[in-house]
């Protein structure tokens, strides 16, 4: 266990630190070897673990689904095509149910990507928490956080992309005037314009923030509990056995959470985009 030589606090801190790459205080570029160093790198640094894992999983998703898409026939589907079709139909039904903005070829593939990708990212939470960081320290990397959705950069990155799409469609469908009017003239009419603007802007900003924080918070908390359970393993046989059961129970429960969070992120994205497509009267 990675925490053997450290205190519990160190163990937790170690697990919560991303593998940061950026400019060190002495001016050279490289990996941060302590949380303080990572902090000092400022904005222009990258979390290599977050990006790496999400790109690998994203490419895996695209590769597997592309394989099904290339071989897709209208005849009898194979098992994999069957599964992909089931997922696609599920997404398609969700989009049809929530999105009323007419024909938009982006929404459904966007929803599919969000759902599968976030699901896969969340799924990394079920990998025992010391395996990959342990492997990576053996390879000489000081930190490695396997679950990208426990990094707010990842969740905010996605929610900001969604937010940009919301803004794009708001301007495209309603026009600059229409969108401004929607922000300024509701809910109190034109005499309450400052209050309207204030409320509506908060409402608007709350969308990406809540989208990102909900996913991050759920997964971060889940990860945290896994870490705490892992700490129990070093507290003697009795605690260790109990921790085993706890970990199993929490992991099973977490299967629900990770799927649900992926689904919520997808559904809210569809709903926000649907709202962006709707004209207010």
């Amino acid at each position: 266990m990675a925490g053997e030589a450290h205190t519990s606090a160190d163990y937790i801190r170690h697990h919560l630190q991303n593998l940061a790459f950026g400019q060190r205080p002495d001016g050279t570029w490289g990996l941060a070897h302590s949380p303080e160093e990572a902090q000092a790198m400022g904005f222009w640094s990258l979390h290599l673990d977050t990006l790496g894992v999400s790109i690998v999983l994203g490419v895996l998703f695209l590769y597997l689904f592309r394989k099904a898409a290339v071989n897709a026939t209208a005849g009898v589907p194979g098992p994999w095509q069957n599964f992909v079709e089931w997922v696609v139909e599920f997404i398609d039904t969700s989009v049809r149910g929530s999105f009323s903005g007419g024909r938009n070829l982006l929404i459904a593939p966007l929803a599919l990507t969000i759902f599968i990708w976030i699901f896969l990212l969340n799924l990394m939470d079920l990998v025992p928490i010391d395996w990959i960081p342990g492997l990576m320290s053996a390879l000489g990397l000081p930190y490695f956080k396997l679950v990208p959705t426990t990094d707010p950069n990842a969740t905010f990155g996605m929610s900001i992309a969604v937010f940009l799409l919301v803004l794009y469609y708001s301007f495209k469908i309603k026009g600059v005037g229409g969108f401004a009017a929607e922000l300024a003239l509701h809910p109190f009419g034109k005499w309450g314009m400052p209050a309207n603007l204030f409320l509506e802007l908060i409402n608007l900003i709350a969308k990406p923030v809540s989208l990102a924080l909900r996913l991050f918070g759920n997964l971060y908390a889940g990860e945290m509990i896994f870490i705490l359970i892992a700490l129990l393993f070093s507290a003697g046989i009795g605690w260790g056995v109990m921790a085993g059961f706890l970990q199993l129970g929490w992991a099973i429960f977490h299967i629900l959470i990770i799927t649900l969070q992926a689904f919520i992120f997808m559904t809210l994205t569809i709903v926000y985009l649907d709202m962006a497509h709707q004209e207010h009267h």
Partner: peptide
Amino acid sequence: MNINATLIGQSITFAVFVWFCMRYIWPPI
């Protein structure tokens, strides 16, 4: 747990994945 350029990287990755999905995966299926 600090915000940094990973944010931008993740957004770009996300956009590319969505584009690929929209272009090459969704329509054939």
